[in-house]
Design a protein around this nucleic acid. Structure first.
Length: 564
RNA sequence: UGGGAGAUCGUUCAACGGUAGGACAGCAGACUCUGACUCUGCUUAUCGGGGUUCGAAUCCCUGUCUCCCAGCCA
């Protein structure tokens, strides 16, 4: 589904360098800690679309399982019905699959285990390790203590097991209003770790759950749920992000108190990318406020966004493999991601000529009405990708940036008196220009050398530059969507997202021109528009109107020279 | 300032008591019918201070800085 328009998929080397998690697994296998088993899981909450940050976790979990001959489950952490939706479940399933991973028959939901979780809560009550607390949310907060002061024990902390059992059953039965009571673990209100200060296990919440509907009026909290779900599924290594380090004692406390299989929680650093928002909350805001067209807007760092933008799963996997895994809180530079998408597309994308910002070129000495068919290679390094014919005629378009009336230093392209090569076609020399009333150049007049047909002159003379072109008469008009970062380079750190948005994150070139060979290309077909960038066919394309997204620009040495 | 976790080229990951290395970025050059690709070369790092050791990025002590934690979110 991802590779339309690409040649055969190369075997991307996904041999990541070692990392501390892999080392732990190797060590565990040596000591027989989990009987040599490796079983991981990717556990998203279905409250938004997956983004590049999740790709790191997915590659890690599925990658490790694959490498060690183990398994990886897909599990939805759906314990908060007020935020979760089936739309998100569907998108997540689609995205993980697109990234290239397979959970076989192991698709689970925390909600699959609600009854078991409830029974375990009863066990903890009977063991004297959980109690029903009548404090309000505010009172709980007030009695939790501070970093330097211990919390205050709830007055309901020492209710009898019988009373707790009765109350908890009635919580489930719907006898009490939302928020009026919670089930709490009886641990230690003086613990320096807030997570251990009698954490809430269950809250009363009347919200329709996307899977269990209105079956439940009480929902378990993340901390109470996660370890048990891992345990039920026989997870050996429960890999999560750094902010859960403080939760590990609680994770362990539950599985140990319950006397069930104890997976090992391991924390790694979340992915940060320069100039990129990787927070579900903020991404949701972008969608809700209409700053983007949706979760799959090609400017979004969501997997569906970058997929639409033209990124490939191969490139993403290579990227995830290359960034490593550690506990350092770092930020990866966005150009590294761009490097991987260029590397993948360079190897596979068919070449084509397209002019994004056209200026007319007239070949004065070319016969009126004549058309030439020129042979062009679909890939410079892969003859097996074949050749195609590109029509040539008297009136052409070239890129506006490829002509200068007054050339700056080191400018090799077309200017009055300069000879250049039209790729796969002829040498042309600029003889004059036509301007409009504003002094804008509207036509560039050239002469061509018929002997240079195909792109080389028999006399062996050289030109400094080869530029791309399309025949005006034959070209297809299309819409090129040029993307830049959604965020301003030096965006002020503010909660007001509007002030951080790059006003030119999307530039639409409605009058771009492309050679006719691309006619009918399917959505998501990838191309390299020679000398311009990698593009793919957007979902919005129709038979009448081709729309292409710029996935990433080609590296542009000239732009650097010109800047100096 | 209670607890938890970190600190190695500009960025990121390695080096697991024995020559600090890769990738990206940058710079310079070669090649080129894409100023692309490819190739060559170069610049730049062990947070500070003590110790242990023949030898320390690695072990110990100490200081400094950064990140996370007081949801009935995950």
């Amino acid at each position: 589904m991802s590779t339309e328009g690409l040649n055969e998929t190369p075997a991307t080397p996904e041999t990541a360098p070692s990392n501390f998690i892999r080392d732990i697994i190797i060590q565990d296998n040596k000591t027989g800690k989990h009987g040599g088993r490796v079983h991981t899981r990717f556990p998203p909450e279905p409250n938004g679309y997956l983004h590049i940050g999740h790709a790191k976790s997915i590659c890690l979990n599925f990658g490790l399982a694959k490498e060690f001959g183990g398994k990886c489950n897909l599990r939805f952490d759906d314990t908060n019905p007020s935020k979760e939706e089936t739309e998100y479940v569907d998108s997540i399933i689609n995205d993980v699959r697109w990234l290239g991973f397979d959970w076989e028959d192991r698709l689970f939901y925390a909600s699959d285990y609600f009854e078991q979780l409830y029974q375990w809560a009863i066990q903890l009550i009977k063991q004297g390790q959980a109690y029903v607390c009548d404090l309000t949310a505010e009172q709980v907060r007030e009695t939790r203590g501070t970093t330097t002061e211990p919390g205050v024990e709830s007055p309901y902390r020492n209710r009898s097991a019988e009373e707790n059992l009765d109350l908890f059953q009635r919580m489930r039965a719907g006898e009490f209003p939302d928020g009026s009571r919670t089930l709490r673990s009886k641990i230690d209100m003086a613990s320096p770790n807030f997570n251990m200060r009698d954490p809430v296990m269950y809250r009363i919440l009347r919200a329709e759950h996307h899977r269990t509907g209105n079956d439940w009026l009480i929902y378990p909290m993340y901390d109470y749920t996660h370890g048990e779900c891992d345990s039920i599924e026989g997870i050996t290594h429960s890999i999560c992000t750094l902010e859960f380090e403080d939760h590990r004692p609680l994770y362990d406390w539950y599985v140990e108190s319950l006397g069930i299989h104890r997976p090992q929680q391991i924390e790694f650093d979340r992915l940060n990318l320069t100039n990129t928002m990787l927070s579900k909350r903020k991404l949701l805001l972008l969608v809700q406020k209409g700053y983007v067209s949706g979760w799959d807007d090609p400017r979004m760092p969501t997997l569906s966004g970058i997929r639409r933008r033209g990124y490939t799963p191969e490139a993403l996997r290579a990227f995830c493999g290359s960034i490593g895994v550690s506990k350092t809180n770092g930020t990866i530079e966005f150009p590294l991601l761009e490097h991987h998408i260029r590397e993948d597309l360079n190897a596979r994308a068919a070449r084509v000529m397209a002019v994004v910002d056209p200026i007319k070129v007239i070949i004065d000495n070319y016969p009126d009405g004549q058309t030439d068919e020129l042979e062009a290679a679909n890939h410079p390094d892969k003859p097996e990708m074949g050749m195609r014919k590109v029509p040539f005629s008297k009136v052409l378009y070239i890129e506006r940036d490829d002509f200068r009336e007054v050339p700056p230093p080191k400018y090799y392209r077309l200017f009055p008196g300069q000879e250049v090569r039209l790729r796969y076609a002829y040498f042309i020399k600029c003889v004059s220009v036509v301007k409009d009333a504003n002094g804008e150049v509207t036509e560039v007049h050239c002469t061509y050398d018929p002997a240079s047909r195909g792109g080389n002159s028999p006399d062996g003379r050289k030109v400094k530059s080869t530029i791309h072109w399309v025949s005006a008469e034959h070209a297809l008009t299309f819409e090129a969507r040029l993307y830049e970062s959604l965020l301003l380079e030096d965006a002020p750190q503010s909660d007001d997202i509007a002030t951080q948005l790059n006003p030119t994150s999307l530039v639409v070139k409605a009058n771009a021109k492309i050679e006719p060979s691309v006619k009918g290309a399917a959505p998501n077909t990838h191309f390299q528009f020679e000398r311009v960038g990698y593009f793919n066919v957007d979902l919005d394309s129709t038979d009448e109107k081709l729309v292409c997204n710029r996935t990433v620009q080609l590296k542009d040495t000239w732009a650097k020279i010109a800047k100096k």
